[in-house]
Design a protein around this nucleic acid. Structure first.
Length: 300
DNA sequence: AATGGTCAAGTCAGC
DNA sequence: GCTGACTTGACCATT
C-alpha cells in the first residue's frame, strides 16, 4: 500500500499547477509556466519521498492549454529531457503516479465535439506519462460520464468509445464510480465489456452505493486489475461535518481512517486521499499506516 | 498588496 | 431557468 494526495502540496511554497488566461497565451508564457510547474513537481516528488508518500496525482494543469487548438508548441519535445528525468526519479523510488482529467472529459457524450475535445485532453494526459517513461501502472482515471436521459445507452456508448481509443490512452485508462450517476456495479459492468480496471472511490460509494460492504467493494474492484496494471487504486475522503453529503472535508478524520484500514485488511491497493489539506492529511495517514504490514515505506 | 469576479471545456440536481 | 458542485484553485483587473 502506497499512500498519496492529489496535485498540490500546500506547504513547500511552490505550485505545480500555475496557469494563465487564454487571452494572455503566448509560447513564451507557456514555456515559462511549464518550466516552473516541472521544477515544482520535482520539489514535490522529493518532499514526498522524504515523507514516505509514494503515490501522487499529477495535476492536469501541468501544461496549460495542451489540448487546446491555440497550443501548437511541441512541449513534449521541448521538455522531454526534464520529463524523462522526473520519470526516472519516480520509477527509481517506486512511485505510483496517476492523473485525473477534470469534469470536461466525457468519453460518452452524445456530442461529437465534446467527445473529440475529451479525446484530445486524454491524449495530452497520456503524453505526459509517456514522456516521463512511466509504465502501464501509471493510470489516467475518469468517470463514466453523463446519463443523457438514457443510462444504458450511455454506458454502452462509453464501452464503444473505449474500444476505438488510441492505444496510448487505452493502456492507461481506468474508470471510477461517481457520487451521483454510476455506481461501482456500473463500473464493473463497463470494465467487463471494455477491459479497463475499476478505481473504487470509497467516499462516492458511500453516497451512491450499489450495496457492497468495503471488503466486497474492494474484492469486486480488485478482480478488474491484471498483473500489468499495478496494484488497484482506491480513492478515500472524509465527509465534511455539517455540509452536504459528499462534500470533502478540510482534514482527514483519523478515527474513520483507522477503521478503514482495519476493515480493508487484507486487501492491498494504493490509496489516494482526496482531502483539502493535501499533504498534511497524507502525513497523518502515513503515520497511522506504519506498522500495517501492507504499508510501503522506509518504516518508522 | 489585497480583493473579488472570473476563468477552455459539461452535466446534473436542486432551488 | 439559474446556480453550484464536481479533485477545486489561481489569474488578473481593479482598487
Amino acid at each position: 500500500m502506497r499512500i498519496g494526495y492529489p496535485c498540490i502540496n500546500r506547504g513547500i511554497g511552490c505550485t505545480g499547477a500555475a496557469t494563465f488566461r487564454l487571452k494572455s497565451y503566448s509560447e513564451e508564457r507557456l514555456i515559462a509556466t511549464v518550466k516552473g510547474n516541472l521544477a515544482c513537481l520535482d520539489a514535490v516528488l522529493r518532499y514526498n519521498l522524504a515523507h514516505d508518500i509514494l503515490f501522487f496525482r499529477i495535476t492536469s494543469d501541468l501544461v496549460p492549454f495542451a489540448s487546446h487548438p491555440v497550443c501548437t508548441f511541441d512541449w513534449s519535445a521541448h521538455f522531454g529531457e526534464t520529463l524523462a528525468r522526473l520519470g526516472e526519479f519516480a520509477r527509481c523510488h517506486r512511485f505510483r503516479l496517476t492523473m485525473h482529467p477534470d469534469q470536461f472529459v466525457l468519453l460518452n457524450s452524445p456530442s461529437d465535439d465534446v467527445n473529440a475535445r475529451s479525446i484530445a485532453e486524454l491524449l495530452y494526459h497520456a503524453e505526459v506519462l509517456d514522456a516521463m517513461g512511466m509504465g502501464p501502472d501509471a493510470k489516467i482515471q475518469i468517470h463514466i460520464g453523463g446519463a443523457y436521459g438514457d443510462r444504458e445507452g450511455s454506458l454502452a456508448r462509453f464501452v464503444r468509445r473505449c474500444a476505438v481509443l488510441d492505444r496510448r490512452i487505452r493502456r492507461r485508462l481506468v474508470v471510477e464510480n461517481d457520487d451521483r450517476l454510476f455506481t461501482l456495479a456500473d463500473c464493473v459492468r463497463v470494465s467487463e465489456d471494455a477491459g479497463i480496471p475499476v478505481v473504487l472511490d470509497w467516499f462516492h460509494h458511500q453516497v451512491n452505493s450499489s450495496g457492497e460492504s468495503l471488503k466486497e467493494a474492494l474484492a469486486r474492484a480488485a478482480v478488474t486489475w491484471g498483473p500489468s496494471h499495478g496494484p488497484p487504486l482506491v480513492d478515500y475522503s472524509s465527509q465534511k461535518a455539517g455540509a452536504r453529503q459528499g462534500s470533502h472535508a478540510e482534514s482527514i478524520d483519523m478515527g474513520d481512517f483507522a477503521s478503514f484500514l482495519a476493515e480493508s485488511d487484507p486487501h492491498d491497493f494504493d490509496l489516494m486521499l482526496e482531502i483539502k489539506d493535501k499533504e498534511a492529511s497524507a502525513l497523518k495517514a502515513v503515520a497511522s499506516a506504519r506498522g500495517d504490514p501492507r504499508f510501503l515505506g522506509k518504516g518508522p
